[in-house]
Simulated assay, not measured.
Amino acid sequence: MRSSLITSIRSRAATSLAGVLLVAALAGCAGQAGSGETSSAPSLPNDFPVAVELSGGDLISAAKNGAAWTASVTLGDSDTRQGAVEKLTDHGFVIIGENITTGNDQVYSLSGSEYSVRLGFSEHDGRDVVNYTVAPRADESR
């Protein structure tokens, strides 16, 4: 009986260790750059559209999923939410929708000649965060 108890404890410890190692391995994948290389800081995918100028501040995350890209950026100390929107409107994007979701969270939909952009503003750890979702325009009448 004591032997089966020791075996059970060892099995649980091995399972726990495997779980910890899996989480550590997956955390390493979160910082992958667009080229598939692991880096300590997130970076934009290599083919992120240059027409979409991101706000200053720190890049929190970025990814490409199919034909769409996402990026999350903290606003820099001198940046504002309106400034993030103006960076896009100054480069030809037009606001086609605006919505305040809950509290201080806002969402803007913008359209450009080649891309549609959705900006979502939220707060994280006391800092404003801009969440970008970028997709090629679907219509052919550009």
Rank of each mutant, 00 (worst) to 15 (best):
L26V: 08
L75D: 04
A18L: 15
D125K: 03
C29S: 14
P45T: 12
G97T: 02
G28Y: 10
G66C: 12
N131A: 07
H91E: 13
A51G: 06
F48G: 02
D128W: 13
P49H: 11
Q106G: 08
R81V: 00
S43F: 02
S55I: 07
S16T: 05
M1K: 14
T70R: 01
S61G: 13
V134E: 04
L75P: 09
A71H: 05
G120H: 00
A13M: 12
S109D: 12
R2V: 15
A13H: 11
A25F: 11
V52R: 09
T70E: 01
A33D: 10
V85W: 04
G83V: 08
R118G: 00
K64R: 14
V52E: 05
N104E: 15
A68G: 10
R10M: 11
A63Y: 09
D77V: 11
E123P: 02
E114Y: 01
L5P: 07
N131W: 02
G120I: 04
F121S: 01
S109W: 01
L26I: 10
V52Y: 06
A62K: 03
C29Y: 13
T74R: 11
G97P: 05
S78W: 13
D128N: 13
S11D: 11
I96K: 06
S39G: 15
R137N: 02
T15M: 09
T74F: 12
E114I: 05
F121V: 06
R12V: 14
I6K: 14
A41N: 06
I60P: 04
V85T: 06
D125A: 10
S11R: 09
E98T: 02
A138T: 00
L75C: 04
E98V: 01
A62D: 03
N104T: 12
E123M: 03
Y108V: 05
I100W: 04
T89V: 05
P42T: 00
D58K: 13
A13V: 11
S122L: 04
A51D: 12
I96H: 04
L21Y: 10
V134Q: 06
S116M: 07
T38H: 08
T101D: 03
L22E: 09
L119W: 05
P45E: 12
K87S: 02
